[in-house]
């Protein structure tokens, strides 16, 4: 399997370290940014297979970066996992924050603190789905 590039965008250094450790594997390269602008720059430079994105960050918010990603043809297909302390059931309503129907919701949402096993499983699933889609795209 080809090496995978994952970008973690979170202003909290402990989260970056934690997620990097969790995802550490011989097959994955981790890139990280502590704000959306830096993350956006990396997304333009590196071919990414997955982005883990925080919502509340200084400067541009994670949701604003997410919307930009989805509107950019070259980047719109990168799977995104949003990881935030915002409670999904009561507070995080994607459409409340992004009311543009053209912007699809993210692939997955994790509430902090994460369940490591679930997180790893979701990451693996999203990476393999992307792989399959790519293969399918090539074969057709």
């Amino acid at each position: 399997m080809k090496r995978k590039n994952i970008l973690i965008v979170d202003d909290e250094p402990d989260v970056v370290v934690y997620l990097s450790e969790v995802l550490e594997s011989s097959n994955i390269d981790i890139y990280s940014a502590d704000n959306a602008e830096a993350g956006w720059k990396l997304a333009g430079e590196v071919h990414l297979d997955l982005i883990c994105l925080d919502i509340m960050m200084p400067g541009e918010s994670g949701l604003s970066m997410y919307t930009r990603l989805r509107r950019t043809p070259d980047l719109k297909d990168i799977p995104v996992i949003i990881i935030s302390g915002v409670e999904q059931e009561q507070e995080f309503d994607f459409r409340k924050f992004v009311d543009d129907e053209k912007t699809p919701p993210p692939e997955y949402y994790f509430e902090k603190p994460i369940n490591v096993d679930d997180f790893v499983a979701v990451v693996e699933r999203l990476l393999s789905m992307k792989e399959k889609r790519k293969k399918k795209g090539h074969s057709s």
Binding site: E12, D14, V15, V17, Y18, G85, E87, E111, P113, I114
Partner: peptide
């Protein structure tokens, strides 16, 4: 209360990360 829970969750994430790395 919701906000407090949010802050605590962030800290828990950090604590959990710490434990995970210590374990490793």
């Amino acid at each position: 209360v919701a906000g407090l829970a949010h802050s605590i969750k962030n800290i828990l994430m950090g604590l959990e990360g710490g434990m995970y790395i210590v374990g490793k």
